[in-house]
Write a protein that binds this DNA or RNA. Structure first.
Length: 591
RNA sequence: GGUUCCGUAGCUCAGUUGGAUAGAGCAACAGAUUUCUAAUCUGUGGGUCACAGGUUCGAAUCCUGUCGGGAUCACCA
């Protein structure tokens, strides 16, 4: 049984025995570093009711714990804080429990299916830094939920239809001159993205020209010939015009080939990929049903709407007057399809917070049309990645490209590793793999250590660190532990936990942190927050490094102590590896 | 303007759901390597937790207001 539980039970017993108070919710906290002790119990809340001074109360409970708990070896009372020191034997027992628990770090099966949808790229442009945050976040959340005992289905909804797709198609058709990825040497998604930017550039010129002719900005935007052509193209697409479809398919192929490479580099994967071109018709069908049942209504121009004013929102368009579907129409269809496929109890959408309103509307509509999956929907809304110059905009080309950034990271990892002279004994293949592991570790950790809800800043001028609070710092610690284990193995040590006498303070702290892992995992699952895992593994590694610097395992004369420390290091290494895998980050055994 | 998220060290971020003297990393400075990997460790300096009230034993955290910033309020996705 873990120390925390034991102490909580005994404090409850002490309150009952000494003061006749029934309290079953005892909250313990780790003791602040400046004070003696490991756990702290705050007695203030009981002072008033019991009419005792905080010191009296603290002493009474402290004495009771020392006498009865078997784990508290000493205590001190500062103001209203009862600080408890824990006997080494209790720490060792706690550690032994973890050491022997083969399922440590995997919570019991919940027998529940959860879907995590993430990535959701548009096929008119390559992925950028914002997508990296999205993909790493989605993948990590899926890992965390899985470790929490859920059956997790990872899905990707590819946005491969709509007016924006037509924009890049049109620009390519008009100005592309038959260029291909092969002829241009560009990755497919980058080639298509080039024409999306091209469209916007020319569109803006047309708007400006129209404005000079005296049109208002709004009218100019609506009447620009390029936009009208794009709209016509969308209509053709929805009417299955063969030439349009052929172009669409060709460009899609390019993009998908490009995305495949990027996903591989990112190390993310999906159980199922949906395409909006396959779901929007189902969405339209749902709208038609809803129109009959009166959930939706039609305006004079034939556009279809839903009235959400009773929910505190506005009226929302669900079908255009020309009958083509909008974003939310296809999301309705996709939601239906996903539920039919997997019957999940919870469906998590990992999408940026700029779409908070969209998902509020979507979920309300799903409830209004009485779908069984209406209660299980959740928008995991994360903050944007800003540049010092502000928000990234694909159309204007002010983005940090995902492929470029990952490559830069790999280059940096290579330079740093060679600089430090750490490539000795590595084959070229192993070295390349290491650079990749370090680069992606640094990048993923950088993006995942921040609370997902908050927006964060990325400064391209300052490269992402490999020292300090970073992925490579944690990876490095893992590599050092592996080195210890290799050496221990050579000397025939297997790691035991018997008869270990005196613990270092840093060892106590590490054991405390290890014991917290299941709770942190549960919290991260509840909050869908990889940041909690990131922070945890950093704390663990910091505490271990302190230990590493204080003691030398192989110079230790006491053989029992050696065995314990080998076992201890082994568990820390495994925990680092597990926690990092929840973030989608690999850990090397040498670096 | 409505809705909503946010404001903590020079910079990037934590702060365990109300607890002690608010913590890390980067940057700066000073140290540690005959030792299991120095991508490490130890230390110094750096704060009116945007501001003003309130709630109570106790507030960065909860409430109200003010100021400042982001997102959104599209027949874009």
């Amino acid at each position: 049984m873990n120390i925390e539980k034991i102490i909580q039970n005994h404090i409850a017993a002490a309150l009952k025995a000494e003061f006749n108070v029934e309290e079953n919710n005892i909250s313990l906290q780790p003791t602040k570093k400046d004070f003696e002790g490991s756990y702290t119990f705050v007695v203030f809340p009981y002072v008033k009711a019991l009419r005792k001074s905080p010191v009296e109360l603290g002493n009474a409970i402290g004495n009771y714990l020392v006498a009865n708990s078997g784990v508290v070896s000493a205590f001190n009372v500062v103001q209203g804080f009862l600080n408890l020191s824990i006997a080494d034997s209790a720490w060792v027992d706690l550690f032994t429990g973890i050491f022997k628990d083969k399922t440590f770090g995997q919570l019991p099966d919940k027998n529940e299916v959860v879907m995590v949808e993430y990535s959701s790229p548009n096929t008119n442009k390559p992925l950028h830094l914002g997508h990296l945050r999205n993909n790493f976040l989605g993948f990590s959340v899926a890992q965390i939920l899985s470790a929490n005992g859920y059956k997790v289905i990872k899905t990707n909804l590819v946005n491969d239809r709509g007016i924006h797709i037509c924009k890049s198609m049109l620009a390519y058709q008009k100005f592309g001159n038959g260029e291909t990825p092969e002829s241009s040497g560009l990755k497919g998604d980058h080639l298509v993205g080039k024409y999306y930017v091209e469209f916007d550039k020319r569109y803006k010129v047309e708007i400006k020209a129209l404005e000079e002719q005296g049109l208002s900005e709004d009218d100019a935007k609506k009447q620009a010939p390029l936009l009208i052509e794009a709209q016509e193209m969308l209509l053709k697409w929805e009417n299955n015009d063969s030439e349009t479809i052929a172009l669409w398919e060709k460009m899609n192929e390019w993009v998908f080939a490009g995305f495949k490479l990027t996903y591989e580099k990112m190390g993310v994967s999906f159980d199922k990929t949906y395409r909006e071109s396959n779901t929007y018709l189902l969405g339209k069908k749902i709208v038609e049903e809803g129109l009959k049942s009166g959930v939706f209504f039609q305006k004079e121009d034939n556009s279809v709407w839903i009235d959400l004013t009773d929910e505190g929102l506005d009226q929302k368009l669900v079908l255009r007057k020309d009958g083509t579907s909008v974003y939310i129409t296809q999301d309705l269809g996709t939601a239906e399809l996903k539920y039919n496929d997997f019957k999940m109890s919870k469906s998590i959408y990992v999408v940026g917070n700029e779409q908070d309103y969209h998902f509020e509307v979507l979920f309300k509509i799903i409830k209004k049309i009485g779908r069984p999956y209406g209660d299980g929907t959740f928008h995991l809304s994360y903050g944007m990645v800003d540049l010092p110059s502000g928000k990234m905009k694909s159309r204007e080309g002010t983005v940090v490209d995902a492929d470029d950034l990952m490559q830069e990271m790999i280059d940096t990892a290579r330079e740093r590793t060679i600089e430090l002279g750490k490539t000795e004994g590595f084959s070229q293949v192993e070295a390349d793999e290491l650079y990749d592991t370090l680069a992606m570790g640094a990048l993923k950790y950088f993006l995942l250590k921040v609370d997902p809800k908050k927006r964060m800043l990325f400064n391209p001028e300052e490269s992402i660190d490999f020292q300090g609070h970073t992925g490579p710092f944690i990876q490095y610690t893992h590599a050092r532990i592996c080195s210890i284990l290799r050496k221990a193995h050579e000397q025939g040590m297997i790691g035991k936990t018997t008869d270990y006498p005196v613990l270092q303070e840093s060892e106590q702290e590490v054991i405390y942190l290890l014991s917290q892992y299941p709770q942190i995992l549960a919290d991260a699952g509840r909050d869908l927050s990889p940041a909690l895992i990131s922070q945890y593994v950093y704390d663990l590694v910091k505490a271990y490094n302190r230990f590493y610097n204080e003691v030398n395992i192989f110079n230790e004369p006491d053989k029992n102590a050696q065995q314990f420390r080998v076992a201890f290091s082994g568990v820390v290494g495994e925990t680092i590896q597990k926690a990092m895998s929840l973030l989608g980050i690999k850990v090397p055994s040498r670096m």
